[in-house]
Amino acid sequence: MGIGKSQFSEEELQDYQDLTYFTKKEVMFAHQKFKALAPEKVGHNRNAKLPMAKILQYPELRVNPFGDRICKVFSSSQDGDCTFEDFLDMMSVFSDAAPKAVKAEHAFRIFDFDGDDMLGVGDLRQVVDRLTTPQRLNEADMQQLLQCLLEEADLDDDGALSFAEFEHIIEKSSDFSKSFRIRL
């Protein structure tokens, strides 16, 4: 990890350790992974901003149906391009140590495609579609699925999931925190 040391001062590492769910070693390891995405660029500027296409080369994100959404949510410029700090934030949320509520908060934003702070029918439909590509559920099945979904979770019957409702589900799902996780 000698390369990492030369690029960060001890103070910065301490900051990162305090502000993420990582230890210093893990931060440096994350930086190595980040550097591997674009070695020459990050070599010059350790906090270089990489375009979304580059970030999506990260193996777990490449195959993830929500890869672009994840980038957008964590990008500090909101366009999907990520600096190392954004990347670190992302990995921190996906790490084992991050509590469920933090994960839920970000998951909600990932699933909220239209950004209206509600998971409406359109959002849910898109989530399901992205999960099942290349196949698609036919319209009748989709209708039924969404209906069942809302029946389970939509407590106030307004046809959309608010964050409180979403969090309520996540709270009861032991699988969520296990699956919403990327090992560094």
Binding site: A107, S173, D175
Partner: peptide, 26 residues
């Protein structure tokens, strides 16, 4: 109680990084 929600919101394993298994997971 929450089988549908579990499936839709917790269905994808974010740790998958292999194309082939991603296809199979879909």
């Amino acid at each position: 109680f929450y089988q549908y929600c579990n499936l839709v919101f917790g269905g994808w394993d974010y740790c998958i990084h292999n194309e082939k298994s991603a296809v199979i997971k879909h």
